[in-house]
Design a binder for these strands. Structure first.
Lengths: 237, 237
DNA sequence: TAGATTGCTGAACACTGTTCAGTGCAAACC
DNA sequence: GGTTTGCACTGAACAGTGTTCAGCAATCTA
């Protein structure tokens, strides 16, 4: 019964070839400039054949987003070697790694954290196991800072993580969209934001957010988002 | 000699009609879903006629970006009534206004601060008079906080502005791209980030950035950006 | 070997931004 | 008033996009 297996292997090979081609084109030419036709041409298949492997272009990019989280996860793993550092320096190192990821892999970063061109992202986002893993690891580090007395006991580790991560995403967006002025350096800005928020957390201001450590447990909760209806940005009419 | 004037008025009317149609479609259907053909259809002209008013689709959106800054400027003007507040509360109010702008005008916000689909944005950005005006006003407010002793004397007002603004852009991006978990509320997060950074600035950590108050004066400066070459994202080949 | 299955293709559909030859109308000139 | 000029505007086209589908050819099953 090796035939089915070989067929499956063949399909898997093409599946991978599509992803590899899409990734290479995506990184070198930029997300939106990659067309199904270009991917098909690179793997020497017809454009239509792609659609027997992925239901839509979106799904190719979902698969690539998962690769992105795997990559971020891998680069984060290098930082585990820094376990000897004091908790606060670990935080610094990890978030520096997160920011550097946005520098080294701008297209992955854009896809994972910024892009709105894939409408289903909000539904699918929490399904990325690696995304949760990366996040939980960072939240753990925050908790260790609280335990070590670096941050006040009332500090919510998940919120502390969210504050720094969100701000760094802001820096990355400003850098990637080239909105910073000529006198501004994104790398320094990233570091300054981390330092300022760390100092702010240590000062322990009164904060409004009440976030559970694992929001996945709250999947049933409703009404947490503001009621504003955003345009859903369908790929085309 | 009223003929030339009337002709000019007619052209100006069509010019405005294009912008109005583009803006309405843009706000209701989302930036990328607005096509030249849709704009043309709405103003009951042929698609080609648009090109005698704007060199490209990009330029329509540049004009809209300027409108966005005008809008932000206008909403900020309402806050001038809050001049009686203490400096720190003014900062809070103004940045809350900035964040709310991202909520109330997500498409304008996206265009002005996030979108990468208009490649020339980095060149044209500082040409927006309103952008500079809004920024300078906020930097002034920061300076007043320093003068009032709310922030340490060493605080760089432009950097303080940049820290908060960038972080809020991060929140807005997370919200607009629907990346926040079910237990997270963007409005609270925005407020918490402002409070945390204010607390951090008051603690006065050692920061790396050395930013001049008006980076426009440094337009000749080179090498301030990291050398990484980003894909330029041409609209099409 | 006959039939079913399946992977892939060519062609098409409905879009997109943009260009250009040509048309028709209004202004300018005689 | 008649003619010519200028120009706003159009229809059609080009080259590109994501996606669909009938059909072909090769392979597997019986």
């Amino acid at each position: 019964m090796g035939i089915k297996e070989r067929q499956e292997r063949d399909r898997e090979a093409v599946h991978r070839a599509i992803l590899d081609a899409a990734r290479e084109l995506f990184v070198s030419e930029g997300y939106r400039n990659v067309s199904i036709r270009k991917v098909a041409e690179r793997i020497e298949y017809s454009p239509a054949s792609i659609y027997s492997y992925f239901p839509s272009k979106d799904d190719i990019f979902f698969a690539l987003a998962e690769e992105g989280f795997r990559l971020l996860h891998g680069e984060r793993a290098d930082l585990d070697a820094l376990a000897v550092l004091p908790p606060l320096d670990r935080i610094r190192a990890i978030f520096t790694g997160f920011y550097r990821f946005s520098v080294n892999h701008p297209e992955y970063f854009s896809l994972m954290f910024v892009d709105r061109s894939v409408p289903r992202i909000s539904q699918e986002y929490e399904r990325f196991a690696f995304a949760r893993e990366v996040k939980n690891h960072l939240v753990d580090q925050m908790q260790q800072c609280v335990d070590a007395g670096v941050f006040p006991p009332a500090t919510q580790p998940h919120l502390a993580f969210r504050l720094v991560a969100t701000s760094l995403i802001g820096v990355a967006v400003m850098r990637l969209s080239d909105r910073l002025g000529p006198g501004e350096n994104a790398d320094d800005l990233a570091q300054d934001i981390v330092e300022t928020i760390i100092a702010g957390l240590q000062a322990g201001p009164v904060l409004r957010s009440h976030v559970h450590s694992d929001p996945c447990l709250l999947e049933e909760s409703i009404g947490t988002h503001s009621g504003l209806s955003l345009t859903s940005e369908e790929p085309h009419s």
